[in-house]
């Protein structure tokens, strides 16, 4: 594919999120449904993604990772803040300009069993975005589709097959090919390997890494598995209850975690080494993440934090630069 020239200029910001808020109303009652509360799924996230960069986004289920992904894609309305792609503010754009912007911004979903239409052949799935956006002449579509299939490691002779005829890993390749069909600049991958076997996971990770290199793509990679995120990402953002608690280069964040939550996440990764695994002290987090309907006061992590103090309950800590990365903890440097 010839998109390398299009995505040049590494180092400059391509996607910027400014104080994104995505809230959902909670309604109760049958006839006159009154709003009784608000779920603050994403509550003030600011991030930037550079050309050719892989940004990993980690956190437990319910922390707002997927909501953030969908907000960036404009699949959900933003409550506040702005998503800026190459200088264009998507949150203030009209529907038709969002349609045009989608060409540059594509998504890969977690479950390749649910995200492909079972009644569409691979050809139809991959051709549809190109026809909708009129990126090539109808006569060229077949050759474009076979190029795409080769790019993701599928044989073009399977073009007329349906999704159920493929394995999970192959389906995820089709989903990736669909996202690449318009030669986007940014891809948002929401847990693209969580549903796959370990050996297939490695294949898909290799594919994504090589596509980023070859096509100069920027990738927002969402996962809950820190070891996978560490491997593929340049930078990592750790989310907890709708906010970023730690952000920095992948090696800094994962090998030298400063936020107590990141430390607990890192210590929960099972090590494939019996002696090391049995010898180590694990930071066991009690309970589940709290409900975003009714978030704890101050630092949202305080009810589960082993280092909690009174002042943690009072203020929401901002992200502060510390030891090469940004951390949002009141007791930064003390613990």
């Amino acid at each position: 594919m010839q998109s390398v020239a299009k995505n040049s200029d590494p180092g400059s910001v391509i996607l910027e999120l400014r104080d994104i808020k995505t809230h959902f109303p909670v309604r109760q009652g049958f006839l006159f449904r009154k709003q009784t509360g608000t779920v603050k799924a994403v509550d003030g996230v600011s991030l930037s993604v550079q050309h050719g960069e892989v940004l990993g986004l980690v956190g437990e289920s319910g922390c707002g990772k997927s909501t953030l992904a969908r907000t960036i894609m404009q699949l959900l309305p933003t409550t506040g803040g702005s998503v800026i792609l190459e200088g264009k503010n998507l949150t203030q754009s009209t529907a038709s300009s969002v349609h045009d912007i989608r060409r540059d911004l594509q998504m890969v979903f977690q479950d390749p069993y649910a995200s492909l239409n079972p009644r569409m052949t691979v050809f139809a799935t991959l051709a549809e975005p190109m026809l909708v956006h009129r990126v090539c002449k109808p006569a060229e579509v077949v050759s474009k589709v076979s190029q795409l299939m080769e790019l993701v490691g599928l044989a073009p002779r399977f073009m007329q097959k349906y999704p159920h005829e493929f394995s999970g890993g192959q389906r995820q390749r089709i989903a990736i090919a669909r996202a690449l069909a318009l030669q986007p600049k940014v891809i948002i991958a929401d847990e693209p390997v969580s549903a796959l076997d370990v050996s297939v996971q490695a294949q898909i990770l290799n594919l994504l890494a090589s596509l980023v290199r070859k096509m100069g793509l920027s990738l927002v990679f969402i996962a809950h598995d820190l070891s996978v995120v560490k491997h593929i990402s340049d930078r990592v953002a750790v989310m907890y209850l709708g906010r970023i608690v730690e952000l920095g280069r992948a090696v800094d964040v994962i090998e030298n975690p400063q936020h107590p939550y990141t430390r607990a996440l890192v210590s929960a990764i099972p090590l494939p080494n019996p002696d090391a695994e049995r010898a180590r002290q694990r930071i066991m987090l009690p309970g589940d993440p709290p409900s975003p309907i009714n978030p704890p006061s101050g630092c949202a992590f305080h009810p589960r934090c082993p280092y909690v103090q009174e002042r943690c309950k009072a203020v929401v800590p901002p992200l502060i630069a510390f030891q090469n990365h940004d951390v949002a903890c009141v007791r930064l440097g003390e613990v």
């Binding site: 050996s199 890494a209 070891s227 560490k230």
Partner: peptide
């Protein structure tokens, strides 16, 4: 041995991950 080698955390960061070819 192949299963063990395909665990991401045991491999150097950024390098091509070892995979078992085929299905």
């Amino acid at each position: 041995r192949a299963l063990q080698r395909s665990i991401p955390s045991t491999q150097p960061k950024g390098a091509e991950l070892f995979t078992i070819p085929g299905m």
